[in-house]
Write a protein that binds this DNA or RNA. Sequence first.
RNA 1: GGAGAGGUGGCUGAGUGGUCGAAAGCGGCUGACUGCUAAUCAGUUGUAGCGGUAAUAACCGCUACCCCGGGUUCGAAUCCCGGCCUCUCCGCCA
Length: 432
Amino acid sequence: MLDIRLFREQPDFVKAGLERAGVDPAVVDRVRSLDEQVRSLKTSAESMKAELNAANKALGPLMKTLPQEERDARRAELRALGDRITEADAVRQTVETELQNLLLEIPNLPHEKVPVGKDDSDNVVVRTFGEPRLFDFTPLSHWDIGEKLGILDLERGIKISGSRFYVLRGAGAALQRALITWMLDLHIEKHGYLEVYPPFVVKQECLYGTGNLPKFADNLYHDVEEDFWLVPTAEVPVTNLHRDEILGPNDLPKRYVAYTPCFRREKMSAGRDVRGIKRGHQFDKVEMVKLVAPEDSDAELDTLLDNAEDICRLLQIPYRVVAVCTGDKTFSSAITYDIELWAPASKGEEGGEWLEVSSCSNFRDFQARRANLRFRREANGKPEFVHTLNGSGLALPRVMIAILENYQNADGTVTIPEVLRPYLHGRDTIRK
RNA sequence: GGAGAGGUGGCUGAGUGGUCGAAAGCGGCUGACUGCUAAUCAGUUGUAGCGGUAAUAACCGCUACCCCGGGUUCGAAUCCCGGCCUCUCCGCCA
């Protein structure tokens, strides 16, 4: 959520930012008009309340001594005033709710460094690592490799849960588990994150905090009976760990890493990426989340991104880093870099593609304001909103795809990346 | 799932429907005293919104906040209803 004061004091700045993000800047004037209404309604109601409070204060001690008739008269008079206040408050409440709802649907302003663009075709590749491998045979897609090795069962996933679900078997399941443990260990021991294991269902407040609600409910699984929501990413529970808290001077930065499954309805991408395991309703992910002081967030994004890239480098899989443009960035983020792994056969007959395995973002105070997530610089200082960041490190299914397709051999086996072997009892190859 | 108890300021904890933003203690801050620390004494000490003086530190006024949301009443921390949460006992269970 953007600071209402920004709308009051620098409306042109907000308009310019929203325009860059491809949002109609006319909302700024609507916000300002609603804000002015709320404030004037509040002022008039407050002066009535002051009047009522003063009258009540004066009336209290007189109640015992005043003649019955006069008491009744005073009561009626004040009751009428009270009723007018109730009405005024109701009107104010309506307008205020409208304002709040509007603010909740306005996206974050893009960071000044974000390239301006309309959609993902305007994203900018900022660096690449490694060279796509040259095959002396025709590389198979991961779904072919997976089925042939008996480590991926797409049919039975569909049988038991429907489309976009799959089953990993044997070395497939073990490989994913090894990846999760290895990534966690790396972030904990080498990069200095604290591991947390959060709930996989959350209350709706958490989703408002990160910005998934109210706008993106149709991508979320919701248990109506208990009003629980399945997490679409660990970002949601972990960013909300300190919701409604004021952290102390020595509590920042917080650097967390969490493994969770992620649940997404994928209503927006119906019919897309239906083959293989590229896009499922359920997938696993290791996620890094940071809470930092505002002046540190730019630098923290750089290290966050590097921590995620480290995984790719150690796996020795070609990747590229993409600066996401203003038109393609997500609702809550101010700036985002995507990491894309090369998958040589992920499009089947059509060949390879760059697969998004991580999205590293700085949200500045956008989520912190929604989640009321603050800190004090000094013991008696004024609370300020923290800056939040997060990035995948990494999303499992697509890493699996990249490993299977990049490390496949002519004989149908798959070599296991060296860094993972200690996590697989020294095993170096997946064979049938 | 059954029965009971309770949710008050940074913490502990009091609070007959009006004089309660709220006693007291602890903690914090300021000052005094004392070679220093400690102790003692005095004062002070919630947050937010709006308006004003003043300007970027501060001061004054009003409003709101005693878990959340409704209600009763001229007036609610206090009474009533609903919800959430915590604790204790019993039952069940990975």
